[in-house]
Design a protein around this nucleic acid. Structure first.
Lengths: 339, 339
DNA sequence: ATGAAAGCGCTAACAG
DNA sequence: CTGTTAGCGCTTTCAT
């Protein structure tokens, strides 16, 4: 492996000049430039990045902390994050926290050891104060998370609006009795989604029945269980917002197994726009989160933070999701008063 | 940010001793050890990894090259790779090649610049000779790819066996006319899958009809198209191996739309064990690739290569997939002679 | 058991 | 426009 010294010798120049050529500095004569390029070519020289990192105090690497990469939503997010990073000549280190406080802290330490120039958090396991304390060592950007008063730049989807959109859509189709499922994640974002949902109901003069509020639903199986509960309700809802496509899929599959028709017997709306939502029969109406926008913005913000070195700031970058209206909710219901 | 020098000063010792304590070297008195630990604690000192990398000529980072991370199979693979890396105290850099030769080469350069200690390739875009030339700069492990005579360690699934398993299963159910779909990827692995599939047929004295061979099928839509073609065949197959769950899903969805019953009218077998295969009605019989085993082995091999520094070697580590028999093929067909 | 000193490979003052 | 020199933070001979 040849070093800059070897190149300098071969070209009959100093390391400085070689370095200048390599880094496109001005004030180098075209002749020496050529000389250097030839020597570089000849030796197959490539600069050593550890030496560069040490000298420049930057690594060109950003860590992305994720609960589990195989979750469709997150792998999607990572895909866009990687593209955005690549466009800015950054590498991405993937860190799976597995929902562990300890792992999250361990990975945040990458900031202290200067192994990365910044950290993107896509979920938060530790107390805000813990996260906040790391801001001393480098930039952190919250992507897909929002914490009310944190002095950390945040990029997230407008969950209140998402919830509102779904409710509005169902109300417009004549539904007055709509079930709601929470994901079990108790973030500010999830609270906002619920509030947005309820606000739409209130505005429509429609009350929300807490008995139709299902908590901690995230999996296919949860969806199946919810159907079983709904079957036994005295007043069954005419629509359900499952909060996730997997839950919706499980719910629908169980419903069909029991001879129900979707959306005739009950309309279903999911969340995430997973591939599966287009493959089931009926295709599932779902919320499309602004994944690409969030990824690009997060990287932009990160880039800016790295360069201005101002890490602590209250910045909220909000993006709106869209509703993909598909078969599972595609039917107008004759208005019927339900208490 | 404090350095080892600061720690040394505060503890009233030399950098050497501090370094010895930090790296668990022998021959340090317990007293000085304590002194160092106190100083480290007091200053919140953490070693700088760029300096370490430069000095030790190792980064503790491994690059994983992947076409697209959001592909379920790959995100699954990355999940396990990250866990295996983490267990060995390595970080993973994610590189999406987007099927581009150029990007693949660019990322392989990470080996030259010594930004990573090794590269795991999960697909191959460039000529073998190109890849091979990088072995000069560091270890490369092929994970999920197999190239006949390459002197690069390989970890992969036994595709011949996978194809054989599927054909055997369908033959046992009485099928004599089975359609086959190729993925469009022309790797040795894919060829082996096809050969294994055909071998089972031959062994059963059953001939394969090339008119029932569909090429380049990878997406849901491809599956739908294939159904349309099958409908119009003079002799329709009684079973189809779609080579992928998405293709299977598309095929089934289109078939049902046309009033066909699965598996009664045609049995369907997919590949990959994607979540969707369990959610459709009927649930899809599919091949479960040994993802976790491959990930763990790849990391083991990588670890060994890094430490022995013997990068070029012919090593084939083969793992077998399993067949998840589900509804889409769960039916015996009365034996009927077909030409 | 401990320390002094060299050096990993690179870049940026500074001087000319 | 070009070269000399110092130093980023760490580990490891080599002495003692």
């Amino acid at each position: 492996m040849s070093t800059i010294e070897d190149v300098a010798k071969l070209a009959g120049l100093s390391r400085t000049t070689v370095s200048r050529v390599l880094n496109d500095h001005p004030y180098v004569s075209d002749e020496k430039k050529r000389l250097v390029q030839q020597a570089v070519e000849h030796l197959g020289y490539v600069p050593n990045s550890a030496a560069r990192s040490l000298r420049n105090q930057r690594t060109g690497i950003i860590a992305v902390l994720i609960p589990k990469i195989a979750t469709p939503f997150f792998s999607q997010l990572v895909e866009y994050l990687e593209m955005a990073a690549s466009a800015k000549n950054y590498q991405l280190i993937i860190c799976q926290t597995q929902f562990s406080k300890h792992k999250e802290r361990k990975y945040l330490d990458l900031l202290k050891t200067k192994q990365v120039d910044g950290v993107i958090l896509t979920s938060i396991e530790n107390e805000l104060s813990v996260i906040d304390s790391y801001l001393h060592f480098g930039p952190i950007v919250l992507c897909n998370e929002m914490v009310e008063h944190a002095q950390i730049p945040m990029v997230y989807m407008n969950q209140a609006n998402s919830g509102y959109l779904v409710a509005k859509h169902l109300l417009e189709r004549g539904h007055r009795h709509i079930a709601y499922c929470s994901t079990g994640i108790e973030s500010d974002g999830m609270k906002a989604r619920e509030q947005g949902f309820k606000r739409a109901l209130t505005e429509a003069g429609c009350s929300f029945n807490e008995s139709a509020h299902f908590k901690k639903s995230a999996t296919v199986n949860d969806g199946k269980q919810i159907f079983k509960k709904i079957v036994n309700m005295k007043v069954t809802p005419t629509a359900i917002f499952t909060g996730g496509d997997l839950v919706a899929a499980g719910f629908i599959s169980e419903a069909i197994k029991h001879g129900w028709s979707i959306p005739e017997d009950i309309a279903v709306v999911g969340f995430d726009n997973m591939k599966i939502s287009e493959l089931l029969d009926p295709m599932i109406t779902t919320v499309i989160p602004p994944v690409e926008e969030m990824a690009i913005k997060s990287m932009d913000v990160m880039y800016e933070k790295i360069h201005t070195k101002q890490y602590r700031s209250i910045e909220k970058h909000e993006y709106s999701s869209k509703l993909a209206i598909r078969e599972s909710s595609m039917m107008n219901r004759t208005l019927v008063a339900t208490s």
